[in-house]
Amino acid sequence: MPDNKTNTARIVPTRFSQMAKQKPAMSRNDAILAGQSAVTELEPEYLEWTDGLLRELWAAVDASAGHEAFPNPNGEKAYDLANQIRNLGATFEYDAVTHVADSFCELMHRLTEARRNDPHAMQTHLKALRLVSTPDFKRDGSGDLTPLMDALRQLVDHYPEPTGSAA
């Protein structure tokens, strides 16, 4: 019988919490080492994923440039793709990829709220993403990102930050 009672609050034991407390536990340090090793194994695939996502993103941005205003389907697709790129980068220590892609997402979010289109700002972000997503940049050039991020921030700040809307 379903419980129709309302206004109740009680601790409900779950299989997860019971099993997670069993011994022997895995220490945090061991977990981080094991997890990092698993991530490292995926790095060659990460480069392929990012390359594929960037190609799709470039196509979506090109298609979106033909629209006068946001929202439009290509702009939404571009936001989704940039968000995926954002969510992967720093896991593989491509922190600059996450920062630039996050700026791109924020730009798209603001353009949508402002119902504007700005192909130049989008393409500038894309060029930056291409630059920072290479292994060479990760190895040699990821020192001071401040000038790059400042330049991108100026493009984003051209549009007001939405105040009341949720994602």
Partner: peptide, 18 residues
């Protein structure tokens, strides 16, 4: 983005602080 430490910490909190 996900990190092994961040994920472990949150699962630990969920398990230990129901």
């Amino acid at each position: 983005p996900l990190s092994p430490g961040g994920l472990y910490d949150r699962l630990s909190w969920i398990a230990m602080h129901p």
